[in-house]
Amino acid sequence: MVSLDFSKLGGLVPVVTQDAATNEVLMVAFMNEEAWNHTLQTGKATYYSRSRQCLWIKGETSGNIQKVQEIRIDCDNDTVLLKVEQVGGAACHTGHRSCFYRKLIDGGLETIGSPVFNPKEVYRS
Score class of each variant (00 low, 15 high):
V2S: 11
L4C: 00
D5C: 14
K8H: 04
L9C: 06
G11A: 08
P14R: 00
P14W: 02
P14F: 00
V15M: 02
V16S: 13
D19T: 12
D19A: 11
T22P: 09
N23W: 09
E24R: 00
L26K: 03
M31W: 03
N32K: 08
E34P: 04
E34M: 07
E34T: 10
A35D: 08
N37L: 06
T39D: 02
T39M: 00
L40I: 09
G43V: 07
G43H: 01
A45V: 00
Y47S: 14
S51Y: 12
Q53E: 15
L55T: 10
G59P: 04
G59M: 14
T61K: 15
T61N: 07
G63V: 09
G63C: 13
N64W: 05
E70Q: 13
I73G: 10
C75Q: 04
D78M: 03
T79Y: 00
V80K: 08
V80N: 12
L81Y: 07
V84H: 15
V87C: 13
G89I: 05
S98V: 06
C99Q: 06
Y101K: 10
R102P: 01
R102M: 07
L104K: 12
L104Q: 12
D106L: 06
D106M: 04
G108C: 01
L109I: 10
S114T: 14
P115H: 05
V122E: 06
R124L: 14
S125H: 01
